[in-house]
Amino acid sequence: MPVPDLSGVPPWAEFNDLKNKINDIVAKYNNLLVNLDSLNVVSLTADHIDTGTLDANVVTIRSDLTAGAFIQINGSGMLINNGSYNTFTADINGFVTMTGALIQSQTGYPRVVMDPASQLFGAYQSVSSYVAITPIGNAASSPEVSINSTAGRISIFQQSTQSAILSTGSLVFYTNDDFDFRFLNIAGSLNVPFSRVVDFGGLGTSLLQQLSSKAESGINTDSAGPFNGGIPIGTELMVNGGGTVTWVGIAAHSHTQN
């Protein structure tokens, strides 16, 4: 509503003129307070405003922070700026963009963390047990996936032109979940069950089967013979100086393998 006309009393006003003017002013003052709106307010200074809804399409709410940072809400949405760039925006369609934000499911454990300052992504069971993806890891200054626990640490990363797996403890690869020795165990040396090393070249046999069919050093061969040595057994042979002997062949025997 517009500001009411509050003209004064005429010169040499009588008592009734004063009484009527006061009643008129009181009536207009009451009406003004009851119907106070934006037409009557040019500037407002207050330590707090109690309201149900504050229309940000009409006013701009802004809080200036340190180093040029600020928070602002107006008809274009919500904006948080760190003094250099917008870290949070919510546009008129409700679409939210966050840049350089620390996001975590909770302050305790277990928790999921997205942290641009250190790890890109981490899932923590405790401060020492977690799975993490880091843009620059410790192993080779390359992107890294690491699994940490009280048992040790394993990292998967790119090293030069090759992919690498680094483990502080034994590294075991299981082919299924029944734990029936179908695994590859690397613990200082390479421990491989020969029965699980299978030839894919066409034989279809394991390394254990092929080694078992080979000669073993220090073990005697099976006994074989007798052999004629190229001379029929029973042949009479002349002896130098006279007389003869009968050729009985080479008796059955074995050899020690080296």
Rank of each mutant, 00 (worst) to 15 (best):
I154W: 01
T205E: 12
L207V: 08
P226E: 01
L208D: 07
T161F: 05
I219T: 14
A151D: 13
E236Y: 07
F181P: 00
I186P: 02
S195N: 13
K214N: 11
S217E: 10
D178A: 13
S163C: 11
I233D: 06
R196G: 10
T221R: 02
G188D: 05
N228M: 05
D178L: 12
L203M: 08
V239W: 01
S217I: 12
S223H: 09
T175N: 15
N185L: 11
L237E: 02
S217D: 12
S189V: 11
L203C: 08
T161Y: 07
L184Y: 03
G152L: 02
E216I: 14
T175R: 15
G234P: 04
S189C: 06
T161W: 04
G229K: 01
S155D: 12
A215W: 09
S212D: 15
D180S: 14
T235A: 08
T168N: 06
I156W: 10
G201H: 07
S206L: 02
G204R: 03
G234C: 01
I186N: 01
V192C: 11
N228R: 02
G201N: 12
P226M: 00
T205L: 09
S223C: 08
A151G: 11
G218T: 04
I165G: 02
I165S: 00
F181G: 13
G152I: 00
F157N: 09
F194P: 07
D199H: 01
N220Y: 14
S212N: 15
D180H: 07
I186C: 04
S217C: 11
G225M: 04
G234T: 06
N220G: 08
I154L: 06
